[in-house]
């Protein structure tokens, strides 16, 4: 999605992206970003938590209104109300995605190699 923010902005639209992964926003170079420390799939908050959703949207609109430097990333101070372990488990799909099934053994192998190089 960081790429789409750039595409739309380059087409003449003023964009604001809200994301839990400012890591990618920075690497790709998103015009304006509000970062939230929320679990995946819940970018603006919890279902039916209207106050929380509005706080995040207000912050996003403020970033859009006030930031004037391309690549700005503003970090929200909102916190996720559920315990970390629950939130971490709840956002994930019931079945691992197909690519995770394919790649996990390969990534583990790569990590073991890297670790071996350091020893």
């Amino acid at each position: 999605m960081p790429v789409l923010a750039r595409t739309l902005e380059a087409s003449g639209l003023s964009t604001i992206m809200v994301t839990m992964m400012p890591f990618w926003a920075e690497k790709v170079g998103v015009p304006r970003t509000l970062a939230v420390e929320f679990p995946f799939g819940h970018t603006l908050g919890q279902p039916h938590n209207v106050d929380q959703q509005l706080r995040v949207i207000d912050q996003a609109l403020k970033v859009l209104e006030t930031e004037d430097t391309p690549g700005s990333i503003v970090h929200s101070s909102e916190t996720w109300p559920e315990p970390l372990n629950e939130a971490k488990a709840n956002w994930q799909p019931k079945e691992p995605s197909p690519i995770i099934e394919v790649m996990t053994p390969q990534v583990l192998k790569l990590l073991r190699q890297k670790r071996g190089e350091k020893l």
Binding site: A5, T7, S11, L13, I16, M17, T19, M21, T43, L64
Partner: peptide
């Protein structure tokens, strides 16, 4: 596809877009 959506928004005279990756 991104350009398509940009054009559709502009046809509706949109000037600001909120993007919410999942």
């Amino acid at each position: 596809y991104g350009l398509d959506v940009a054009e559709k928004f502009k046809a509706e005279e949109v000037n600001c877009v909120l993007l919410t990756p999942a």
